[in-house]
């Protein structure tokens, strides 16, 4: 976005971004320091020594991937519909979806417990996946709708002139052109599902299905709190998300530049 032809300007930009990052870096340094305090890397060994890291990790992957798939498919359909298609009373549907975003999780727990029991998914991965997806969809739809609004109508008009069906238009215009926002939605959903703590805690009973957010609790108890290992667990939990983000990073940069109708 910025163009820096002169080296001095380039240096200035570099300096600016470095200064801006310092407040963000500082707590991270304190955190890493904390995770290495005491026994140093021994803290990390202790976390792995709990022995369930692998199981927790696998479960979190299952939960996150399923949630992401549901959210992506439903969101893209809905966002396209809201943005480019004719729906009577469109805004009413839209705001009804968005309203679901406003309840605090604590309030949702008890009714969700009853719901998951009644549809027979309690103590399965679905008990966590379905509510997580339902909670992620509203904001994802909002984002994707705004993004698709930015795709020029002329593209769809052209497709229409060519006799393309709505689904063809979706497949060949919307899907490729929304890659940046899709990547963002995948990342957000991953964070939401990977980091969620209360839902797996309450809706899954079987220890073999618990997720990775329950890792730190091995080091926190009524009268003790081993902060060093809690922080080490947090680092271990965060790394997969950061790797996923880096992998998706390239997609964020494509958009119109990538060209949809070539």
């Amino acid at each position: 976005m910025f163009e820096a032809r002169r080296p001095s300007t380039r240096l200035l930009l570099q300096l600016l971004v470095t200064l801006m990052i310092i407040p963000y870096l500082f707590p991270l340094v304190v955190m890493i320091q904390g995770s290495l305090a005491g026994k140093g890397l021994g803290n990390y060994e202790a976390v792995f020594a709990v022995g369930t890291v692998g199981t927790f990790f696998r479960n979190s992957v299952i939960v996150s991937v399923s949630t992401i798939l549901i959210v992506y498919v439903l969101t893209m359909f809905a966002a396209f519909g809201f943005s480019k298609l004719h729906i009577r009373g469109k805004e009413v549907y839209f705001w009804m979806i968005l309203a679901a975003l406003t309840l605090p999780e604590v309030v949702l727990l008890t009714p969700l417990f009853a719901t998951t029991l009644s549809i027979g998914v309690y103590d399965t991965y679905w008990a966590v996946v379905l509510p997580l997806a339902a909670l992620q969809i509203p904001f994802a739809v909002l984002l994707a709708r705004k993004f698709i609004d930015g795709v020029p109508d002329s593209l769809f008009d052209a497709a229409r002139v060519d006799g393309a069906s709505v689904f063809t238009a979706f497949r060949y215009i919307v899907v490729p052109m929304t890659r940046p926002i899709a990547a963002a939605i995948v990342v957000l959903t991953l964070i939401g599902s990977w980091n969620d703590y209360l839902l797996p805690l309450v809706l899954i009973q079987d220890p073999a299905k618990q997720t990775i957010t329950l890792l730190p609790q091995f080091f926190v108890s009524q009268f003790s709190n081993d902060q060093t290992k809690v922080l080490a667990s947090a680092v271990i939990t965060a790394i997969p998300e950061i790797v996923a983000y880096l992998c998706l990073q390239r997609l964020f940069e494509r958009g119109l530049a990538a060209g949809a109708l070539k």
């Binding site: 549901i70 498919v73 439903l74 969101t75 359909f77 809905a78 396209f80 519909g81 809201f82 298609l85 729906i87 549907y93 009804m96 979806i97 679901a100 309840l103 309030v107 949702l108 009714p111 969700l112 009853a114 719901t115 379905l130 509510p131 997806a133 339902a134 909670l135 969809i137 509203p138 739809v141």
Partner: peptide
């Protein structure tokens, strides 16, 4: 196009 998301969200969360 919007119904799957709508039914899913409303069905699961409106009870709450």
């Amino acid at each position: 196009w919007i119904m799957p998301a709508f039914v899913f969200v409303v069905g699961l969360l409106y009870y709450c």
